[in-house]
Design a protein around this nucleic acid. Structure first.
Lengths: 340, 340
DNA sequence: TTGAAAGCGATACCAA
DNA sequence: TTGGTATCGCTTTCAA
C-alpha cells in the first residue's frame, strides 16, 4: 500500500496542500464545528477524501517543520516496578487526553542509562519530560533544561534545580504518620530499615520518623538500618533476627520492596506480627491484605501524582503560569499489624 | 541554547554535511574502527567537534528522509498490569540493545483505544510493532499489516493472521500442568474460574484443564466459571462459598488477578488452604510466598517472552528468515496450597 | 575519500 | 477563504 501524503489528498479534493493542512490540524469546537478559517463544505470534502484514501499524517515531517512533536517523555527507574507502573498508567491516560504521545524509559537507577535515554528522547524533539531523578543524574537532566525543554521531577527532588517543575509526596509527613501510628498504639522501640540509595524521598521519610520519635522523647531509641537496593534475602533475615533479639518492638518500612522482603523474612523466622514485631509498610499491594494479619501501610495517591505531573508539564509547555512545586499528602491504611 | 545541526558541525570541522552524516551514523567495528568510507582522522575531528558543540541528531529529520525511525511500538492492554509491566521491561532492554527506541501504549482491552494508539504510532514511521491483541482489535492490527509494518502478536493469538509473527505461551500445557498437579495430589473435584474475555490464552488454559480432566476419566466433574474482567468482590466470594458447599476440592486460577481475588475471598470466608480448598494460581507474585500457606503456581518466562518478541520483530524488520511462531513452556512452582 | 544537491512531507508565511 | 512556496535537518544519490 502506497503512502498517502497531504499532496494526494489535496489533488483528489481539488484544493491546495495548505487547506488540507489546516483541516487536518483543526480541532472540533464544542459546537462540532472546526475552528479553522476554512469553508465548512470544503473541510468536509477534504475530511472525506482523506478518509477514503487512508491518509495518515507523517509525524516526522510535522515535527521537523514545526519544531514541536506533541510527544512527552517519561523516564522512571523501572517501568516494571509497581509504583512507577501504576503512575505511568495514569500519566499515559492523562497525556492522551491532551493529545500527547508518550515515550517511556527506565534508568535502572543508573546515571549513565538516564543520560542515554535523555539523549534519545531529546533527539525526538519532545515537548517536555517527566523524570524520576537518580543520584548522579543531574547532568542528564540539565541537558533538557539547557535545551529549554520543560522538565517535571517526579517522586524525588533535586533541590539545586529551581527552573523545573516538581511533583512530590510529602515524604516527611509519611514518615511521621507511620511513626505516630506506632507510638499511638503504645510501641516505643521503633526502628526503620531503608536503602543506601541517597534519594530525597527516602531521606525525608526517615526525617519524619526522627521528628516523631524526638517529639515523643525517644531520641535514644532512634535507629535506621540501611541495606543496598536489591539486597540478599539473608541480609534482611539476619537484620530482623538481630532486631528482635535487641528488643525492637516495631518497624517502619519505607518502600514496597523493603516491606515485601521484611515480611518474607518474618515469615521465614516464624515470627508473629504484631506480637513479636509490629509493622507499618509502604505503598499498595495485595500482599498487605493477604498476609496472615493485614498490614498497616502508607499509600501514595498514584493517580493524583500522575495527573498533576502531566498537568504541570502541560502548563509549562504552554507557558501558562502555575505552581511549579506540588506536594501531595499520603494516606494511612490501618491494619492488624499494629494492634497489640 | 541554539540548536546545533549537522551543518554547524560541518562548518566547524571544515567538511561537508555528507561526511558528518556518514560519521554520525557509522557503527564501531569490533576493532574500534568506524565502518564508513571516511578518513579516520577526519572522522575523529568530526566526532570531537560534534561533542564540543553538543550536537544531537534530529530524529524527525532523519526519519522523514530515510523512511525508517529505529523505533518500535509496544501495545499491551495495561502497562500497570504485573504481567505486561514485567514483559515490557525486558522488551525495553532488548530494544535498547538493538538501538530501537520504544513507544508504549495501553489498549485497556478496548478495540477503539487499540485503534487510536495504532494510528498514533503508525504516524511515527515505526519500524515494527509488538501487540497484545484485544477481542475486536483485528482491524487496528490489519492497518499495520497493510502498511507493511512488521507485527508480532504477544501473549494472545489471532489465528486469522498468518503474515505476522507470534510469541506465545503454551497455554494448553499450562492448563494441563496445573490440573495434573492437582490430580497427582489426589484431588478429583477440580474446577476453574476464568474471565468472560474471549482471548485465546484463557481459552487454551481451559482447554488444557479439560484435556487433563478427561484423560483422568473425570469428564463429569469438569466445570469452568466465568466472571467479568474487574468483577466485584462479592461475586467471587459468593462463587467460592457455593463451590465449597458443592464439595469442590480444588481450583485452577488462570490469571494473577483472578488468583488474588480468590485468595482474598478465601481469606474473608476464613477457609483453609488446602484443607477446604486446594489452589493452583498463575503468574508470579510476592503474594504466593507470603500467604498463610505458600501457593503453587504456574509461571511464564517473562524474560524469554520479551526477548523473543524483540528478536523476532527485528528479524522481520531486517527481512531475515526465521520462525514466525514461537511457543514457550510455562514452569510449575510447587507450594503448600496443594498438599493435603 | 569527499562534496553538491535533490528531496522526504509537513507547516508557516505571505499574497491573492 | 484560499493557494504558492520556502523551509525544517537529515540521508541519499551521483559525481568528482
Amino acid at each position: 500500500m502506497k503512502k498517502i501524503t497531504i499532496k494526494d489528498v489535496a489533488r483528489e479534493a481539488g484544493v491546495s496542500v495548505t487547506l488540507v493542512s489546516f483541516v487536518m490540524n483543526a480541532k472540533r469546537g464544542k459546537d462540532g464545528r472546526l475552528d479553522c478559517p476554512v469553508n465548512p463544505e470544503t473541510a468536509d470534502r477534504v475530511l472525506k477524501v482523506a478518509k477514503e484514501l487512508g491518509y495518515r499524517r507523517n509525524a516526522a515531517a510535522a515535527s521537523l517543520r514545526s519544531g514541536r512533536s506533541n510527544t512527552v517523555a517519561v523516564i522512571t527507574t523501572d517501568i516494571s516496578n509497581k509504583y512507577f507502573a501504576g503512575i505511568s498508567r495514569h500519566i499515559e491516560d492523562r497525556c492522551h487526553q491532551y493529545g500527547y504521545t508518550v515515550l517511556f524509559g527506565s534508568s535502572d537507577e543508573k546515571p549513565e542509562k538516564l543520560d542515554n535515554i535523555m539523549d534519545t528522547v531529546l533527539a525526538y524533539n519532545i515537548d517536555g519530560v517527566i523524570v524520576a531523578p537518580v543520584p548522579g543524574g543531574e547532568d542528564a537532566i540539565r541537558k533538557a533544561v539547557d535545551q529549554n525543554v520543560p522538565v517535571v521531577l517526579l517522586d524525588r527532588d533535586i533541590e539545586s534545580f529551581t527552573e523545573v517543575g516538581k511533583v512530590l509526596l510529602d515524604d516527611v509527613a509519611a514518615g511521621r504518620m507511620a511513626t505516630d501510628l506506632l507510638l499511638s498504639k503504645g510501641f516505643r522501640k521503633i526502628e526503620m530499615i531503608s536503602y543506601t540509595l541517597g534519594i530525597s524521598s527516602l531521606k525525608e521519610r526517615e526525617e519524619g520518623y526522627r521528628e516523631s520519635m524526638t517529639k515523643a522523647g525517644l531520641t535514644q531509641d532512634i535507629s535506621a538500618h540501611y541495606i543496598p537496593y536489591g539486597a540478599a534475602r539473608e541480609t534482611i533475615t539476619t537484620l530482623i533476627k538481630d532486631a528482635v533479639k535487641r528488643g525492637v518492638e516495631a518497624l517502619f518500612l519505607p518502600t514496597y520492596t523493603i516491606s515485601a522482603s521484611v515480611l518474607a523474612a518474618i515469615r521465614d523466622l516464624k515470627l508473629d506480627i504484631p506480637k513479636d514485631l509490629a509493622i507499618v509498610a509502604f505503598d499498595e499491594s495485595d500482599v498487605y491484605n493477604l498476609y496472615t494479619t493485614t498490614v498497616a501501610h502508607i499509600v501514595q495517591p498514584l493517580r493524583s501524582l500522575g495527573v498533576h505531573a502531566v498537568d504541570l508539564l502541560h502548563n509549562m509547555i504552554e507557558n501558562k503560569p502555575c505552581d511549579t512545586k506540588i506536594v501531595l499528602k499520603p494516606e494511612l491504611i490501618p491494619g492488624g499489624s499494629v494492634e497489640k
